[in-house]
Structures are given as structure tokens and as C-alpha cells.
């Protein structure tokens, strides 16, 4: 243990200890904190008629909050008339079934596969009303006009989701999520159903063609490389200021310290 004795008096020893402690705490915290995105899939399988199967799934996974007949409880809203699009959005983004009810339910790995999602949607749709799941053609980004989509996005979406769809804060702990993972279908469904804090953009406000344009803008923007280097999260000047201070001023101070450093005195060898 002699090296510890020797090292602990070095000038950097204190910093090293603090750094090590921070690392240990960070790793420990990451290990202990619950993983919201690794929920276990319930093992519902088998195939019947979609509606019947969907009802079975609903009873299993949803009814405890939404009520035995989807009529809603004090914990969760009624699902009568919300339509298949809403179910498809909530379940395929993993938001439903929710793990715990905070200000907003986060996106996570979906619990149900595509078929089960369809069955659930069919069951809720059978209870009456609501928009259906859009067709592949309706959400095809390749047929959308990205330039028009950009204009619509800046006028209707950027105020919450940020100019590049990086997300932003809303009131009361809610937030507009980043659009980096949303599929074209989910973007369309979000617009017609208005999940959580989001308003509904129905087909008279934003026509189906305009919705396709917005989808084209979102998918192109997120796929587009950053010509100027790292995008710094595409959150605007806050990140730029942080980098300017930490990297820019940081490096310059290091350079200044280096340039003005005194040569360490060499020990006299002979005399």
C-alpha cells in the first residue's frame, strides 16, 4: 500500500478521489434506479377473432385502470369513442399500458406486438367512434412536400417540439417528446388524436396532404446530417453557449496556464 501513501499527497489526489466517488455513485444509481424501458412483456398469445382477443388483452392489461368495459375510472379516462388510431399510438409507442402515472407517460419499449396492438385497437374501435388507423399511403413520407411541411411545422409544431423536433418543456412537468423515434404512422396518429398534452389537429385544420408534408419534414430533418459538425443536440444557443464556455474558454485557459507555467526546478545533480 505504499503507493497510496505516495499518491495521496499529490496535488491531483483530491480531484481523483472526488471523480472516483462521483463515478461510483453514478454507476450505483444507474444500477438501482428502476428501468422504465425494460418492462416484461405479458405472455398473452393465441389467436381468435381480433375483437374477442383484444378484449381478453384489455381485461388483462388495461382494465385495472380503464375499467372492465373501458368506461374509465378515476385513475384513467374512458376509452369509449377514442378510436383505433389512439390505441395504436398509445400501445405501439409503449406508453400504454403505463407503468406509473406521473405528469406524463413516457415512451418506452412496447409491451404488445403488432398483432396484439391491432387486436386491442379492434376491440376499442368496436365500442364505437373515433378515428381509425391511417393507411400506409396516408403516412408515406416520400409523397409529402417537405418544404410545405417545414412551414407547417414551424407554425404548428415547433413551439413545443422545437425547430428540429428535439422536444421541449411544457407546463406542469409535461413535455413535448423528441420526434426522433416516432414512426410516420405514429406522427399521423398523434396529430389526429392529440395524445396527452398535444392538441388535436383534425383534417380541417391540417389536411391529410399537409399531415403527409409534416411527416416528410420530420423524417427528412431527423435523417439529415449536420453539415457543420456535431449538432449539439439541435436545441439551439443554450448548447452552443455551454460548449463555447466549457470547450472554448476551457481550452484557452489550459493553453494560457501551459504558456505561463514555470519550468520545474531541476534538482542539482553535481555540486
Amino acid at each position: 500500500m505504499k503507493w497510496i501513501t505516495a499518491w495521496r499527497r499529490r496535488p491531483w489526489a483530491g480531484y481523483a478521489v472526488v471523480l472516483a466517488a462521483l463515478a461510483i455513485i453514478g454507476v450505483a444509481y444507474a444500477g438501482v434506479s428502476p428501468r422504465t424501458d425494460q418492462a416484461q412483456a405479458s405472455d398473452a398469445a393465441a389467436s381468435q377473432q381480433d375483437v374477442a382477443k383484444g378484449k381478453a388483452l384489455f381485461n388483462q392489461a388495461c382494465s385495472s385502470c380503464h375499467g372492465a368495459n373501458a368506461e374509465g375510472t378515476k385513475n384513467a379516462p374512458s376509452l369509449l369513442g377514442v378510436g383505433a388510431a389512439s390505441v395504436d399510438f398509445q400501445v405501439s409507442t409503449g406508453r400504454m399500458p403505463a407503468m406509473n402515472l406521473g405528469a406524463q407517460v413516457p415512451r418506452k419499449k412496447p409491451i404488445f406486438n403488432e398483432e396484439q396492438t391491432r387486436q386491442l385497437a379492434a376491440y376499442i374501435a368496436s365500442l364505437g367512434g373515433g378515428p381509425g388507423v391511417p393507411s400506409k399511403d396516408q403516412v408515406n413520407p416520400d409523397t409529402g412536400d417537405a418544404a410545405m411541411g417545414g412551414k407547417l411545422f414551424r407554425a404548428n409544431c415547433a413551439q413545443c417540439h422545437n425547430f428540429a423536433g428535439s422536444g421541449g418543456a411544457l407546463t406542469g412537468g409535461k413535455y413535448a417528446p423528441p420526434l426522433d423515434k416516432a414512426t410516420p404512422r405514429q406522427i399521423y396518429e398523434a396529430m389526429i388524436t392529440g395524445p396527452q398534452a398535444m392538441p388535436v389537429f383534425n383534417d380541417t385544420t391540417v389536411t391529410p396532404e399537409q399531415k403527409r408534408a409534416i411527416i416528410a419534414y420530420v423524417t427528412q430533418t431527423r435523417a439529415e446530417p449536420n453539415p457543420g459538425g456535431s449538432g449539439l443536440g439541435r436545441v439551439g444557443p443554450v448548447a452552443e453557449g455551454l460548449v463555447g464556455w466549457l470547450v472554448g474558454i476551457g481550452l484557452m485557459v489550459v493553453a494560457a496556464v501551459w504558456l505561463t507555467a514555470k519550468k520545474p526546478k531541476k534538482k542539482q545533480q553535481n555540486d
Binding site: 413551439q159 417540439h161 422545437n162 425547430f163 428535439s166 422536444g167 421541449g168 418543456a169 444557443p237 443554450v238
Partner: peptide, 9 residues
């Protein structure tokens, strides 16, 4: 308008 409308630092 966009979320994250900030001036330079």
C-alpha cells in the same frame, strides 16, 4: 415560434 428560442449566451 420554436421551443428553445434562446439568444446567444
Amino acid at each position: 415560434i420554436t421551443a428553445g428560442s434562446q439568444p446567444d449566451f
